[in-house]
Simulated assay, not measured.
Amino acid sequence: RLGPWALLVGKGGGSLGLQGGESGEFLLEFDNEEILHVDWEKKQNVWRLPDFQRFTSFEVQGALANIAVMKNNMEVLMKRSNRTRALNVAPSATVYPENAVELGDPNVLICFVDRFSPPVLNVTWLKNNEVVSEGVEETDFYPSVDNTFRKFSYLPFVPEQGDIYVCQVEHWGIPEGKMEKIWVSKAPSPIPETMENVLCALGLAFGMLGIIAGTILFFKAMRMNDRRGFM
């Protein structure tokens, strides 16, 4: 499933990724963050955040014209490099929930794959050794300043005690061909009894300090009133 690829970054933040015989991926970004990418099947822009289109616009036909130019430039650069293959850089991966975990409450598991090259990579989710695909969403390949890439994969799930989730990543740079990151669903750890005792003691201490401070202020106020009455 991992095929030939090439990448060219153009002026103004546009980048073009080509994989196999596909049309490619056109991505516009600013400060290393995606603004939009073009969905070739639907022939429309996909904004990273809907509010972005309030401040700027982009014509899909403009992307087609840019791709034609960038494809030509890419072919020239590939010939100059004698079609030398780029080095494979293995990714790192992290799995974490979007929100604090409460058993039985819907949540989202995020698999963040970072610092890999080339941008050809497969992410597969497993739950208790069974492949899960329903509801899974992925971002495009985001380029980084060090010429590597990053990608997010999202899995909606309902945490149940003991469920085991695996984010499986396939990439040319991994010696074994793929790597796995495991996340186990479990209830939040309760506060230890000793910690509860400490918190109760602190609360009691602050309460006593408040009473003492209030008493001192009360008697000071009484003395000041007595002095004023005497004068």
Rank of each mutant, 00 (worst) to 15 (best):
S185V: 03
M224S: 13
F141M: 12
F30T: 08
W47S: 11
E75R: 12
P192K: 05
S133Y: 03
P175L: 02
I216V: 15
A221F: 09
V108G: 06
Q53P: 03
K220M: 11
V166R: 10
D226L: 12
W125R: 03
E193K: 08
G17W: 01
Y154E: 03
L8E: 05
Y142G: 04
L64F: 14
E33I: 01
F141V: 02
T94D: 12
T139F: 05
D105C: 11
H37E: 02
L155H: 01
W47I: 08
R80W: 11
G13C: 00
Y154I: 02
L199G: 01
V131Y: 01
R54I: 02
V169I: 15
P190L: 03
W183T: 04
G177K: 00
Q168K: 15
T139M: 09
G12V: 00
H37P: 02
R48S: 14
S15I: 02
M70K: 05
E59Y: 09
S81L: 10
G207N: 07
F30W: 11
S81V: 04
T56K: 04
E25T: 14
Q168L: 09
P106M: 07
E75N: 12
V158E: 14
R80Y: 10
A63H: 08
N147K: 12
Q61I: 06
D51I: 13
E180T: 07
V38S: 03
F141P: 04
E137G: 05
G214M: 09
G3M: 08
E134L: 10
P4L: 03
S81P: 05
T56Y: 06
N45H: 01
A68C: 08
K186N: 12
L27Y: 08
G214W: 09
P106G: 10
I35H: 05
G10K: 08
S153T: 05
L109D: 07
E22I: 00
E196D: 10
V184T: 15
I35V: 15
I67M: 15
W5Q: 12
R85S: 12
G162I: 00
D114L: 07
K71C: 14
D114S: 13
L64W: 12
G203M: 04
E176H: 07
N82R: 14
T194R: 13
T215N: 11
D39T: 01
A187N: 08
E170C: 05
